[in-house]
């Protein structure tokens, strides 16, 4: 017997209106959480050290806006370098040339294996290692020479530090995406007389995108926050800007709150964008794939499928 109650004689069983299973512990947990939340809100409101008035007055101050712009600019430039370089290094790691493979693997090993903060400070202090930079024939005469300090400004140090580091992470993401594409795809392309570059661009990369785009979205969100590290090399990003203000006014907590609020705004916007893109790339893998607006906008060549 599978059930322990006797069948009800003479009537058909109807499960409509069956009693729900009770979950008393859910109620307990909910009450505890509500109490904790109430405490948190109470603290935020009543603790005067938050100085919400100061927070409000700085939230859209011009100087904060400039720091915010710098943070956004660094995020965009570093991600641009990271994605472009990441694709190249990933292709290098999958190359048939063993030296190229080794160099690209070494690159990833080094830049993922040392802290980003150390790398940033390192680039900032380039002049200590090489006081002068020159362009010329390797081991031969130089055509042009520069003072390192005039080339490696805090801005270039930040871009180098963030960008070169990001290349290593993006290379791993892109490589992971590329190797998910079935080898038969390259064979089919080769049999049709397509060259390697064309096959990569038209056949392999578009398919790998499904596996590359979602983690890249996470990388952008991480990058937006990681840019705050550049404050240690005196580049006026969002964090450095609030620091410079509270060093004068000693309103440390409210100004850090201003920074937090803006970082949350940036990452929330990015997060929403990411979930849109993820949904789009999840759609590509199902049998009946209706193409939404975003799909159409991102991949112009695709026409919506007409189902008959």
């Amino acid at each position: 017997m599978l059930h322990d109650s006797p069948p009800i004689e003479g009537t058909e069983i109807d499960v409509a209106g069956a009693r729900k299973v009770r979950h008393p512990w859910r109620w307990v947990a909910s009450v505890v959480l509500l109490v904790l939340l109430a405490q948190l809100v109470h603290m935020l409101v009543t603790n005067e050290n938050f100085e919400w008035g100061v927070v409000a007055s700085y939230l859209n101050a011009q100087i904060i806006g400039q720091g915010l712009l710098m943070t956004l600019e660094l995020t965009v430039i570093a991600m641009f370098i990271g994605i472009l370089g990441g694709v190249l290094v990933a292709i290098g790691r999958l190359s048939e040339n063993p030296l190229l493979r080794a160099v690209c693997s070494g690159y990833v090993w080094f830049f993922r294996g040392t802290p980003l903060l150390v790398q940033l400070v390192f680039w900032y202090n380039m002049s200590a290692l090489m006081p002068q930079l020159s362009i010329g024939i390797p081991f031969g005469p130089a055509f042009a020479q520069f003072e390192t300090n005039s080339v490696i400004t805090p801005m270039t140090a930040a871009i180098l530090g963030l960008g070169l580091n990001e290349i290593a992470y993006m290379a791993e993401i892109v490589r992971g995406g590329l190797i998910t594409v079935d080898g038969g795809q390259q064979e089919a392309a080769a049999a049709l007389g397509m060259g390697r570059g064309r096959t990569l661009r038209r056949i392999v990369l578009p398919q790998a995108m499904r596996f590359i785009v979602p983690p890249t979205g996470s990388q952008v969100i991480n990058m937006a926050k990681a840019t705050s590290l550049v404050s240690v090399i005196a580049l006026a990003d969002l964090l450095y800007t609030v620091q410079s203000v509270y060093n004068r006014t000693f309103q440390t907590i409210p100004l850090l709150l201003v920074a937090c609020i803006w970082y949350l705004v940036i990452t929330s916007v990015l997060y929403i964008g990411q979930s849109f893109i993820e949904r789009h790339y999840a759609k590509g893998s199902t049998r009946a794939a209706p193409q939404g607006f975003l799909a159409f906008a991102l991949l112009r060549r695709r026409k919506p499928v007409r189902s008959e």
Binding site: D182, G184, Q185, E187, A188, A189, A191, L192, G193, M194, G195, R198, R202, I203, P206, Q207, G284, R301, R302, K303, V305
Partner: peptide, 24 residues
């Protein structure tokens, strides 16, 4: 090929015209 190896990200027409347009 035994496993067809069609390009899954392209429509049927896209699969067929890829090489003629792209390389021929």
């Amino acid at each position: 090929f035994q496993q067809f190896n069609l390009f899954p990200h392209l429509t049927v027409l896209g699969n067929i015209i890829e090489a003629p347009v792209g390389v021929a």
